[in-house]
Design a protein around this nucleic acid. Structure first.
Length: 673
DNA sequence: TACATACAC
DNA sequence: GATGGTGTATGTA
């Protein structure tokens, strides 16, 4: 195998710090004169032995395994394989080359040490001092003075202190940063009304029209724009100008701070530029990808992507290979993308590790509340709730559940979140997070709040206890069947709706991520009308089903166990049961003995409502004395909860060659034979 | 769909 | 003594 000319495994032995790579190992602008070896040593010494460090070691070991695996795959390639992939790669490169568009001029701007610069502007006494915006745990931004000592963003503050004993710390103040960010965006808007803001301090501008209309060069636009930003904010920024966004971003980093770099719209210039460019400079190529490409294929510059094109096509997925080859050709991002919708919304918090379950449930409730606030502020509901856990050992797990309907109330979120968390207990955690995805706009949804739903139910119980009672209209589905209100579910999973412009609301007390693509022209996209969602899905799914099903309470008690089986949660002994309405018992202080519905301790109000529900149900039962359908609490469980089983620790060490490209190759080879 | 990973800032 | 929060994309099962 000729191409697997990876460098020998570095580090280990007498210089263990050399092999400890962190997110902040690679140099940032302003760190040119830094004694990297010394910094590495300090980072290593201060990290060594910590749980964080040990987790990093585990992750590195996995990366090494991946690298070994790819090397092995590489070694199996025959000359025939290689020539086949060479052809594949050449075809791809021709196609990519044909797509090259040199008619656009893109400008990328990046504020210089943004948070630190804003703080210095607000408090001039900080000027000239090594400054870290952040805390002892984490630095968000380091001033250029601090960078000279090796201090940088994403580094924990205590390591920064060690590297730079006089380091001054300032707590982040996101309202300030947002204010200054808005000032910069006013300037951007004048040059490109459709500019793309990727964070508070970075943006892409398509300046093609400005250049044409005013008959000026990209360089002149950059100079003028940077001057305007300085004029209007008092802050400096750097800019890169190039025929596409990928290159423009790299260019803005070249003469940082307070500088600019222009790459002409010329194919040769682009290829020359890319020929020596380290792959790590490219957005999307991080620590792991860099290591893989270097250690498996000996690739360290973009141009080498082209030399090793056949191997890239052989070893990686089509998407990855396309990306790598584009990088080698210096292509990427010439059209303004469609405004993208937010896909998820989340909230997570780190705290002192604890295994105290009541503390953990409290924290979960806080998260649910925060998430609800954020969802409601944006008028969003979601279907998939993901619980993120980070153990005291820094191991990260995520557990998700998809509900049948869209939810966004604290109560609903907490019911599912609690279920997910309970299934993982006991464990010691240092972080919990909740994320809602599969979102849609609340205003497109006719569903109402939990309370309202219960109101409707109770009103209906009072008047007409028939399942098709007056308060809940019967509806007809597409196949013309009469369907019960309870089973009416929304069918708008792929609803398209207007996202609007989003001014970032930086509520967090630390880092902020402003993902909004700022497109001031609000466009109303088509939104497909959804079928009516009559009421709160959680209640519909869990309680409503029970309302339809007609069974004796004792049968329900028996099924409470199955509920747990289906959800694969801790099994509860349904020993405590009551067939009398109003005397409902909570098994394990948690599960409703009648229907298996779970409500954690502390939800006394909700429990009361739930008990009331069964009371009403029981009354209804007395009125409609038919027992047509035996209850299916399994169905109830399936409907309300699709929680996945507890972690199956899969060891991804299956040495069986399952890598798609390789398999695909053999499939193709067989066809070709 | 669920989960893990990688990445950006 | 101590290593973040928000969001996207992708691969895999």
């Amino acid at each position: 195998m000729s191409a697997a000319a990876g460098t020998p495994a570095e580090g280990g032995g007498d210089r263990p710090w050399q092999s400890y790579h962190t997110a902040y190992t690679n140099a940032k602008a302003g760190m040119e004169g830094v004694d990297k070896e010394k910094v590495q040593k300090v980072i290593y010494e201060m990290s060594k032995g910590s749980k964080y460090f040990e987790n990093e070691q585990r992750k590195e070991a996995l990366t090494k395994q991946k690298i070994e695996y790819l090397r092995a795959q590489c070694a199996t390639l025959t000359d025939n394989d290689i020539s086949h992939f060479q052809k594949v790669a050449e075809k791809k490169m021709l196609e990519l080359e044909a797509s090259r568009d040199l008619s656009k001029i893109w400008l990328h701007t990046d504020m210089d040490a943004f948070y630190a610069a804003v703080e210095t502007l607000e408090d001039p006494s900080l000027k000239g001092k090594p400054l870290a915006v952040g805390s002892m745990s984490m630095i968000a931004t380091a001033s250029y003075e601090a960078r000279k000592f090796g201090v940088r963003a994403a580094m924990p503050g205590f390591i920064g202190c060690k590297l730079c004993p006089g380091l001054v710390f300032v707590r982040p103040n996101f309202e300030r940063y947002t204010h200054y960010s808005e000032l910069t965006r006013k300037v951007f808007q004048r040059y490109d009304p459709n500019f793309i803001a990727t964070s508070l301090d970075e943006a892409y501008l398509n300046i093609t029209n400005v250049c044409i209309e005013r008959g000026i060069t990209g360089e002149e636009v950059a100079t003028e724009l940077r001057a305007a930003i300085h004029q209007e904010t008092g802050l400096t920024c750097s800019a890169g100008v190039a025929p596409n966004r990928m290159i423009a971003k790299v260019c803005s980093d070249i003469n940082k701070p307070n500088g600019q770099f222009i790459l002409p719209n010329d194919r040769e210039a682009v290829l020359t530029f890319v020929s020596t460019l380290p792959i790590r400079k490219i957005g999307g190529i991080g620590k792991v990808t860099e290591q893989m490409l270097r250690q498996v294929l000996g690739i360290s510059t973009c141009q080498e992507m082209l030399q090793k094109a056949a191997f890239l096509c052989a070893l990686f997925s089509e998407g990855s290979a396309d990306f790598f080859l584009s990088v080698g050709l210096g292509l990427g991002g010439t059209e303004t993308p469609e405004q993208r919708q937010r896909k998820s919304i989340s909230c997570e918090r780190t705290f002192t590790a604890t295994s105290d379950s009541s503390l953990l449930f409290d924290k979960l409730a806080n998260l649910a509340e925060n998430l609800t606030d954020d969802l409601q502020k944006e008028g969003l509901k979601g279907k998939t709730l993901t619980l993120k856990l980070k153990t005291a050992d820094f191991e990260v797990r995520t557990r998700a559940v998809t509900t049948r309907g869209y939810i966004n109330s604290k109560e609903d979120i907490l019911i599912y979140a609690t279920k997910l968390l309970k299934a993982e207990m006991p464990l010691s955690l240092r972080l919990m997070g909740l994320r809602m995805s599969q979102l849609h706009d609340e205003k497109d949804d006719s569903s109402t709040s939990t309370q309202k739903t219960l109101d409707i139910f109770f009103r209906s119980s009072g008047n007409d206890l028939n399942v098709n009672g007056a308060n809940v209209q019967s509806s007809t589905n597409t196949s013309g069947q009469d369907i019960s209100p309870i089973s009416v579910t929304t069918k708008d999973e792929y609803l398209v709706h207007d996202a609007g412009t989003s001014a970032s609301t930086d509520q967090q007390d630390f880092f902020v991520h402003d993902e909004s693509i700022f497109i001031p022209e609000q466009r109303n996209l088509v939104s497909y009308s959804n079928e009516a969602v009559l009421s709160n899905p959680v209640i519909d799914d869990a309680l409503g089903e029970a309302k339809l099903d007609d069974v004796t309470p004792s049968a329900k008690v028996m099924n409470a166990e199955k509920f747990d089986d289906v959800c694969q949660l801790t099994s509860h002994e349904a020993t405590a049961s009551s067939s009398k309405p109003g005397q409902q018992l909570w098994i394990d202080d948690y599960v409703c003995s009648i229907c298996g519905f779970e409500l954690p301790p502390g939800f006394e109000e909700e429990r009361q409502e739930h008990s009331d529900f069964h009371l009403a149900e029981s009354l209804q039962h007395e009125e409609t004395v038919d027992s047509k359908r035996p209850i299916s609490n399994e169905r109830l469980a399936e409907r309300s909860c699709s929680t996945t089983p507890t972690p199956k620790k899969k060891l991804k060490s299956s040495k069986e060659g399952k890598h798609i490209p390789i398999d695909a190759f053999f499939a193709k080879c067989n066809k070709n034979l």
